[in-house]
């Protein structure tokens, strides 16, 4: 009885972690470059919409994923260009991008399909991948049977760690993050790195959005939307993980664990599922309070 429960908790935890960790890594890059992107929610939403929509048209999951990443990247680059060329405040443009994403996807869903919440029944869906031996071991079983993007997310976290701490690119990025003046005196182009960081953010949020809609073939528009606050949780995760991708992964796993816990409590107790939906947000806030009370840092690299 208890072991299948643990299996399922681990499984849900990993699944819930993926979109959050991807978005958090995306915003980490923009944070390093000094152009903090808060439009994660919007970028995930456009990706969730366009990926499932393209799959509906082409019946090809890969094309769908590329379309989602492309849409998120375009939105991200529009933020970059408006800020860079029109001297707009990044933070306000990010809010605008979030609104645009909600407005655009909801409008397109209603215009093209007649409803803001779409269920595509006949599209191919992302398949679960079972890992041969692990799928039969109790407790570890929860690690198996995830979607390709879930495994990718873990791999990307490790790759980002190596990238940030062991490559010239990472050194330059961290230099900009710590002191733009130093970067300037050494000829490290800040604009170039800001641009690249928005490409990263688009790619990662695109993947994070695709993993929301592709496995189930569903898109939810409207004010709550498919991202459902995950973009904001990603910012909280960045705040907990700071500049280390592995810490970010750990923080995202913590948020994933609270989601799993909220699912578990729904099954095992009579607590209202509605109330339990508040759990990840409350947990994130409490974790930040504890973290900040212990460390003497400012909560984010941005001044908001």
């Amino acid at each position: 009885m208890i072991i299948p429960l643990i299996d399922s908790v681990i499984y849900t935890m990993l699944a819930a972690t993926t979109p959050v960790v991807l978005a958090a890594l995306g915003v980490m890059f923009t944070n390093f470059s000094g152009m903090f992107n808060i439009a994660l929610e919007g970028m995930m939403l456009v990706s969730a919409f366009f990926s499932v929509f393209v799959v509906d048209i082409t019946s090809n999951l890969w094309l769908g994923m590329i379309a989602g990443i492309g849409a998120a990247t375009i939105l991200g680059l529009s933020i970059f260009f408006i800020c860079h060329y029109f001297h707009a405040e990044i933070f306000i443009v990010g809010m605008g991008a979030n609104l645009i994403a909600t407005g655009l996807t909801t409008f397109m869903a209603v215009q093209l399909k007649g409803s803001s919440s779409l269920i595509f029944e006949n599209v191919p869906k992302l398949r679960r991948i079972a890992i041969p031996i692990i799928e039969n071991i109790p407790i570890l079983r929860g690690l198996s049977g995830h979607y390709v993007i879930d495994y990718l997310a873990i791999a990307i976290s490790v790759i980002c760690y190596i990238l940030v701490f062991y490559t010239p690119y990472g050194y330059h990025l961290r230099t900009i993050g710590k002191d733009e003046w130093v970067a300037k005196t050494l000829g490290i182009s800040i604009t170039k790195h800001q641009f690249i960081s928005y490409l990263w953010c688009g790619f990662l949020c695109g993947l994070g959005g695709a993993v929301l809609s592709l496995p189930v073939g569903v898109f939810l528009g409207g004010p709550v939307g498919m991202a459902n606050g995950r973009g904001w949780l990603a910012i909280a995760v960045l705040c907990l993980g700071q500049e280390n991708p592995l810490n970010i992964l750990a923080a995202a796993l913590f948020i994933g664990a609270t989601s799993a816990l909220s699912d578990l409590l729904q099954v095992t107790t009579s607590l209202s599922p509605r109330l339990l939906m508040a759990l990840p947000f409350a947990a994130a806030l409490i974790a930040i309070v504890f973290y900040m009370a212990k460390e003497h840092k400012t909560s984010l690299g941005i001044k908001i």
Binding site: Y166, T167, P168, H172, R174, K178, D179, V182, T185, G187
Partner: peptide, 24 residues
């Protein structure tokens, strides 16, 4: 123009970091 929590060596090579074939 030094990054305070980098080492002296890291600061010296900043901008022209030598890497191996994999870029590490």
């Amino acid at each position: 123009s030094l990054i305070e929590d980098f080492t002296v060596a890291e600061n010296i090579v900043l901008g022209i970091e030598p890497t191996n074939r994999l870029g590490i």
